[in-house]
């Protein structure tokens, strides 16, 4: 649940980037950080292992300014994608107001995407949250590999595997090149803020 300070007129929203290991969650946040560092007066915190894998989580807070008199603070988190770190994922997911699921479009990652989405559903359930009700956006990442003729899952397959029932907004993206990274973030922020607004009314 978002942290709302009515006295200070401040809302703090937590958005978690979820998805299979090496799918590009950290790359998404790094792209935002590197490209808007001058406009966003904040620092990104990342804890990685030797092989550049996220060990615990990445954390990137920033303000988007005042809206309807409320100062909106956004906190972006990533979870470690590797299967073995489920306890960490669950902790990071606690109190999430919005989720971006970064699916890996590589054909070899098809099963990993499905397992990770299932894991997200279970972990949300642990906090009495329903995956169908949480502000949620899909990002089908690594689509840039298409031009390199690497086997990529067709959009229909990605949608069919992951989004057929959920029917959430989705973006084809390349976190490495920055394609649709901002669009994904904007969408999840809008959905999250709207959801918080609705819950306050």
């Amino acid at each position: 649940m978002a942290f709302v300070n009515l006295k200070k007129k401040e809302i703090q929203a937590k958005i978690v980037y979820y998805g299979p290991g090496r799918g590009g969650k950290t790359t998404n946040i790094e792209y935002i950080y590197k490209n808007f560092e001058d406009r966003i007066d904040s620092k990104m915190v990342a804890i990685k292992t030797q092989g550049d894998r996220t060990l615990f989580f990445d954390f990137f807070p920033f303000n988007i300014g005042r809206i309807n008199g409320y100062k909106i603070k956004i906190q972006l988190y990533t979870v470690p994608g590797q299967v073995k770190y489920n306890a960490t994922r669950r902790v990071v997911l606690n109190g999430a107001d919005g989720v971006v699921f970064v699916a890996d479009a590589l054909a070899v990652q098809r099963k990993a995407n499905i397992i990770s989405l299932k894991n997200l559903q279970e972990n949300l359930k642990h906090y009495q949250k329903n995956i169908f009700k949480v502000p949620f956006v899909f990002q089908y990442n690594k689509m840039d590999l298409l031009k390199k003729e690497v086997p990529i899952l067709p959009l229909e397959a990605l949608t069919g595997d992951l989004n057929e029932q959920l029917n959430r907004p989705s973006f084809v993206a390349s976190a490495l090149e920055g394609t649709n990274v901002v669009a994904t973030l904007k969408k999840i922020i809008i959905m999250t803020v709207a959801s918080i607004k609705m819950s306050l009314q």
């Binding site: 809008i190 959905m191 709207a194």
Partner: peptide, 20 residues
């Protein structure tokens, strides 16, 4: 974007701020 989003989540003020 693949156009299947829920319109109930529209929030023009936030959209404007994020665009800036």
């Amino acid at each position: 974007m693949i156009d299947n989003h829920n319109e109930s989540f529209s929030c023009p003020e936030v959209q404007g701020r994020l665009d800036d």
